Amino acid sequence: MAAIDSSVGGVLAAALLLPGIVAPAMAETAPEQGVVALKVANYRDWQPGLDRVKVDAPSIYVLAPLDAHWSLEGSLVNDAVSGASPRYHSAVSGASKMDDSRTAGDIKLTHYADRHAWSIGAASSSEHDYRSNTLSGEWRVSSDDNNRTWTFGLAYSDDEIGSTNDPTLDEHRRTWQLMAGVTQAWTAVDLVQFNLGASFGKGHYADPYKFPDSRPDERRQTTALLRWNHHVESIGATLRTSWRLYDDSWGVRANTLDAAWVQPVAEGWTVTPMLRYTTQRAARFYYDPVYDATLGAPFPPGFDNLQHYSADHRLSAFGAATAGLRVDWQVDRQWKLDLSYSRYEQRGDWRLGGDGSPGLAPFSARWWQLGLSRRF
Rank of each mutant, 00 (worst) to 15 (best):
S199C: 12
Q307R: 14
L339I: 09
V327P: 07
P212R: 03
A259H: 05
M26C: 08
K210C: 06
G356H: 07
Y309C: 01
S132K: 07
R227Y: 08
T29N: 10
D166I: 09
G20I: 09
S364Y: 15
A37H: 11
E160R: 11
E28C: 08
L66K: 04
R244V: 10
Q47N: 12
N147V: 07
P58D: 04
G359A: 11
S340I: 08
Q280T: 00
A91Y: 06
N42S: 14
A237Q: 06
Y112V: 00
G353N: 09
D129P: 08
F194R: 01
E218C: 03
G9F: 01
T256V: 15
S101F: 04
N146Q: 13
G20N: 12
Q33F: 12
H204A: 13
A259F: 04
A317M: 09
G162K: 02
L325H: 05
A117M: 13
P300E: 04
Q177I: 08
F200S: 07
V53N: 08
I4A: 10
D338W: 04
H313D: 14
N147G: 10
S310T: 15
G371H: 00
F200R: 05
W46Y: 04
D158C: 10
A113D: 14
A361Y: 03
E127H: 00
N255A: 07
P167H: 11
S59M: 14
A14D: 14
R351C: 04
G9K: 03
L135Y: 04
A198W: 11
P300C: 04
Q330D: 13
I107W: 07
D45H: 03
G251M: 09
L191W: 00
L66E: 09
S373D: 05
F194A: 11
R131H: 09
